[in-house]
Design a protein around this nucleic acid. Sequence first.
DNA 1: AAGCGCGACAACCGCAATAGT
DNA 2: AACTATTGCGGTTGTCGCGCT
Length: 242
Amino acid sequence: MSEKKGAIKYEEETMELRRGPWTLEEDSLLIHYIASHGEGRWNLLARSSGLKRTGKSCRLRWLNYLKPDVKRGNLTPEEQFLIFELHSKWGNRWSRIAQQLPGRTDNEIKNYWRTRVQKQAKHMKMDAVRCYWSNKNNSMNQTSLANPQEYFINNPASMPIQDELQNMVFNSFSNSSGDHQQYCTTINDLEALDLSFNMADHSNSAVAEDIGVGSFMDMAHGQWMSCGLLESYCMNGVANDQ
DNA sequence: AAGCGCGACAACCGCAATAGT
DNA sequence: AACTATTGCGGTTGTCGCGCT
């Protein structure tokens, strides 16, 4: 490494770098620097602009917030539909998806997916299962759903979990106390359960449930539960996590 | 009024790919 | 060819504001 590069590295290591939310002054500095020097060469920018930030931080701030063509405000229904469609095609390729939505950033789409779509899908799945189960338990009720998939027809917001619903599994078992338990889950969730049985603690199950994977509906109580909770039902006949 | 929980969004981190020397 | 710097991506964490108790 040359002396000059070594000096820069030393300077970076010893300089107090700012973290956390950007101030108006910092935004202004960044905007003015890019206006006169153009974007790119982020580490040089970070050193030359007077900002006590890393190049990565400057790049992110510019691309996700300050760049003039970044759109603000809620996603339109058309944009939401496009995200569903592209996500089903490409998965979590956020930057690729963002390229198809002018003015929207990968970060924004990623946040949208995590905070809204996954939670909404989970609630819808619960409703669909309830409808289906009420039909299964009451053969006279001709108005409820013939299968959980019906619930999702004509509902674009259900797209993220439609594949999952094709694999819906309904089952029941008697625990060691003789109580009859009914549950509903998916093939993927069952695989997650096998995984859960091999885990010493249940912390991962809670995470899995949070994102809608590896979760089960307890038909007796009409509640979702984690793999770990189902495991304790099976082993002990009691819900010792509750 | 204070504390808490939650949702939304901003920012950070680690890693891999690529460019430059 | 080998090494270093830079860039970009996806996952994760942090922060803030708002509503509820």
